[in-house]
């Protein structure tokens, strides 16, 4: 089934999915197969004209995921170096999203079992977190500090060196 893209007939088969807020989307079967959940539904003949309902994925992230899967399914096997690089560029642009969308993609890709997208979103989140102080990360992700000042002090003390990143650089001739 993974090699379905090689067969022009198969890739024309369209799978319909319905977002939690009732919007309908279509994608080639090969694209849907990139989602573990959709693949199982298709294998179990649950993919009918009414569409597969995805109760926890809203239309906005679902549109992105359909995009992602369609792009990747079209280029799944036997990539040339140029195609692989193009796909990398696509991924890099694809994941340039705000933190709200990133959150939705993280959760939806995880729920739908789209491994490549899951990795991409996890990596993007890690890149956003890297090198920041806890406070900067709270700002980035809109998180409220729910530690007591005492707890916070305790936490920082455990590995003080990790929190000393705003110190001015030492003089170097």
């Amino acid at each position: 089934m993974a090699a379905a893209t090689d067969d022009a007939g198969d890739s024309n088969e369209m799978i319909r999915v319905v977002s939690s807020d009732g919007e309908h989307f279509e994608m080639p079967e090969a694209a849907a197969n990139l989602s573990l959940v959709l693949r199982h539904m298709i294998e179990d003949d649950c993919a009918d004209a009414a569409g597969i309902p995805l109760a926890v994925v809203a239309a906005k992230p679902l549109a992105k995921i359909v995009d992602y899967c369609t792009k990747h399914a079209a280029k799944s096997s036997g990539l040339t170096i140029e195609e692989a690089e193009e796909l990398k560029r696509f991924d890099a642009e694809f994941i340039e999203v705000d933190t709200d969308m990133l959150y939705d993609l993280l959760v939806a890709a995880d729920f739908m079992g789209v491994e490549g997208l899951s990795k991409l979103a996890v990596q993007r989140t890690a890149d956003l977190i890297k090198g920041k102080t806890p406070e900067q990360n709270r700002e980035t992700f809109g998180i409220v500090n729910d530690f007591t000042p005492e707890e916070e002090e305790e936490i920082c003390k455990e590995n003080e060196w990790a929190f000393q990143i705003t110190k001015p650089p030492s003089r170097l001739c």
Binding site: I129, P134, I155
Partner: peptide, 15 residues
Amino acid sequence: LLSVSSRIRCRAVCR
């Protein structure tokens, strides 16, 4: 995916 120091700081963000 984080370096050791980023991971330690990340654990200080929220409970």
